[in-house]
Design a binder for these strands. Structure first.
Lengths: 201, 201
DNA sequence: GTGTAAAATTGCACTTAGTGTAATTCTATT
DNA sequence: AATAGAATTACACTAAGTGCAATTTTACAC
């Protein structure tokens, strides 16, 4: 089965689990390297498998598809943000809590690397589509997380709105980051986007 | 094949254009039929081409991919909604104008057919992903259309918000339609979703 | 009508993603 | 040491999608 890396899996540090994580990491590293070097379409699974020291068939034991090499990065991010949200104070306004969680998570990754991945994803229609689709999924995940943190039925619709605005602000920020070629740090763009939308609500 | 030899062919659309439209329509009809009958994956392009009376290679002259048979329906809808928006009064509040445009457009299509297509798309991950991705695209298209209709720079961010809320409400409505198996008409669900979100803004 | 340019259609060969299956090799556990 | 189950692999296969080049069909000019 493909990517788990879940924090809710009991800490197994046997040889099997360690090898598994190593192989998973090796595939993504090698894959990303080849994608950036010679392009996504031009890189075949045979090459990736060979470079990762596994058989082509084994690749499909770790990933459901070629796309998933790229998407796994994106999906991991979503889970991390939701985890970070749980660490935020319940006294904050929900929208602020989300914003701060996102900023905190983004700070943990090298900005130029994030931009390189983003640029790569933009260049592959099928991947870009799945990435944007994951925004829609993340919005619902975020909504569920918000509901748990502020479990007042009265606020439910409001939290739905917060989830929409948050994902929208994130989207706008990354779009701006791409548009202005990383001129300003992502944290600034996030602050700006959240503030602008909040002013309207 | 009776070609009209007369010089008095009144309309501008010639034989070529007519045939083209017919073939396009035949492919989607035949494709949808087969998808609904025997499933998406189980239907091959060879079958579709044969049933549509064309070669497999010609299929790719009309569609970029198998997915596009389904997506073409979805994408058409977006353009129609934006066209309908331009017919709405500029006196209305933007959010109401969008809502009414969407309702007007939906009313033009048979509800059960729309649900059948929606159900089919949900069952195919790759298609579902592209559909959700198109929501993101439509949000921007909608924003641009709104900006043209209410071209006040002061309101720009507000209209961005309207676009987000609108697409969100549409998504929620179609989700509800699917969840409750078409119990209530789509217009009701749209009214409800828009009202609920508007109450929070 | 005739000729001609462009569009539409097709066949063929080819690459590559992805799957089913069954055999084999490892790792964990008793 | 033995056994169960996970991981790895080879092999064969299907089907989507592309490139190319030839052929037919439509449009339009003369």
């Amino acid at each position: 089965m493909p990517a788990d890396t879940g924090p809710n899996t009991p800490p197994k540090d046997g040889l099997r689990e360690r090898k598994r994580r190593e192989t998973l990491q090796r595939i993504t590293d090698v894959g990303m390297g080849l994608f950036l070097q010679k392009g996504y379409e031009a890189t075949t699974l045979d090459e990736i498998a060979a470079a990762a020291g596994i058989s082509r068939r084994t690749f499909f034991y770790y990933f459901k598809s070629k796309d998933d090499i790229l998407l796994s990065l994106q999906n991991g991010m979503g889970e991390v943000i939701i985890a970070a949200l749980k660490a935020e104070s319940a006294d904050k306004r929900p929208l602020d809590a989300v914003r701060d969680a996102v900023i905190a998570v983004c700070a943990r990754f090298p900005a130029d690397e994030m931009r390189a991945i983003d640029r790569l994803m933009r260049s592959i229609p099928a991947v870009q589509a799945r990435k944007q689709a994951s925004y829609v999924q993340h919005e619902d995940d975020l909504f569920q997380a918000l509901r748990q943190r502020w479990p007042d039925p009265q606020r439910e619709t409001g939290l739905r709105l917060v989830a929409m605005l948050s994902m929208g602000a994130i989207r706008l920020s990354f779009e701006a980051l791409n548009r202005e070629n990383g001129a300003r740090p992502i944290a600034d763009l996030l602050h700006e986007a959240f503030a602008a939308l909040k002013a309207e609500v």
